[in-house]
Simulated assay, not measured.
Amino acid sequence: MKYNYCPQCGNPLTENTTDGKGSFCVYCQKRFSITTIEPVKEEVKTANKKRSSMSSKSVVGIIALLISLMFLVSGLLSFFFYQNNIQQEQVYSETLSELEQIAASVSDQFKEIDLEANQLASRLSLLEYEAEGENSLIHEQLDMSIKKQADIQYAYIGYEDKSFVMEPVEELPDGYDPTSRPWYKTAAEQKRSIWAPIYFDASSSNIICTLAVPVYTDSNQSQLKGVMGYDLNVSSLLSNLETVNFFESDYLMVVDQEGTIVMHPSDDLIGMPLHVPELMEASKDNQSQIIKSNFEGKKNTVFITTIEEMNWHILCILPK
């Protein structure tokens, strides 16, 4: 077959070899004689070249448009992620600020208890212990403190002669010597109120913290009379923190200055050491901060701030 081009549409023509009358365009459904075809052959080729050139330009234009769209989408995604990061940073900053306010409130609670203990120590300095007496006034002062502060589990005073008075009254082991106890020695040596390390009370299943205050015979602190103390139920004192949530899946925990877990949603972890190096290292700084950490087998964002009065740390754990 011999191919020429249709003068109307430019598509190939099939020569009619049967009658020799010319060629037939299957697209236009018309027959053209050879004499008709030949004069326009060059024009058709020129037209085809123009179409080809236009097609090439169209392809280039489409490619350029696609590239532009890709850059546009990429730019929009970058802007979206940038905006999202800005918003996330703002939310995280506000969360840390709120956590600092909570820590300050808890610190104030401990300060109030410390203040009350020092006031009680001043009152007890005026009362004399009677070895053979009921010491009802001393018991009354101790009992009043417990009624005033529900988180106090025990209130007591140990004297230099090793005598001991406590509320509520409980039987003590024979030969109990309060002057040999760490809380007594530390408060007497430092001549000020001290917070002793926490311990787990097996009988009540509570975390207990002892506040000890030296009691003197006069305002000049010239002679030590004894040391009074509170055993505080920390689990009760921090119970309000258990309901605090900043996000849907976060939770709070508290660790003391030694890294012992004081409060946690899981009771099994309370009283256990915090074995997370990056959290322990961050806690030592005593500065509010946000870090990434693998805790309890998960990737977490952790907000950390300090309860200044106790040098404890509140951590908000936000699983990724």
Rank of each mutant, 00 (worst) to 15 (best):
Q190I: 08
S122E: 12
P319V: 06
K49R: 14
N240V: 10
E309H: 12
Y176Q: 06
A212Q: 03
I37W: 03
K45F: 07
N220V: 08
E296W: 09
D250M: 01
L269D: 07
D256W: 02
P273V: 03
S235F: 01
V106H: 03
L76M: 14
P265N: 03
V215C: 02
I37L: 12
Y92P: 00
L72N: 10
M253E: 14
Y159D: 00
N206T: 11
Q287F: 01
T217S: 09
Y92F: 13
S97D: 08
I86W: 06
P182W: 05
T217D: 10
N16R: 08
S33R: 06
V26I: 11
S145G: 01
Y176N: 04
F80D: 05
V262R: 00
K57D: 07
S53F: 11
F80H: 15
Q223R: 13
Q29D: 14
I261W: 02
E132T: 13
S236K: 14
E98A: 13
V26D: 13
E258F: 10
M280K: 09
V244S: 04
S204D: 05
A64N: 07
T18G: 03
K191D: 06
Y3I: 08
E189Y: 11
A188H: 04
D143F: 08
D174E: 15
V59Q: 13
T17F: 04
C209W: 02
D256P: 08
D114C: 03
L232M: 14
E89L: 11
Y230V: 04
E89D: 15
T306E: 11
E160I: 13
N240D: 14
P197L: 00
S163M: 07
A117E: 12
N286A: 09
Q109C: 02
S236R: 14
A212L: 04
V254P: 03
G133H: 06
Q119A: 07
Q109E: 13
Q153T: 12
V165R: 08
F247S: 10
I63S: 12
N311F: 02
Y5P: 00
Y82V: 08
T46W: 09
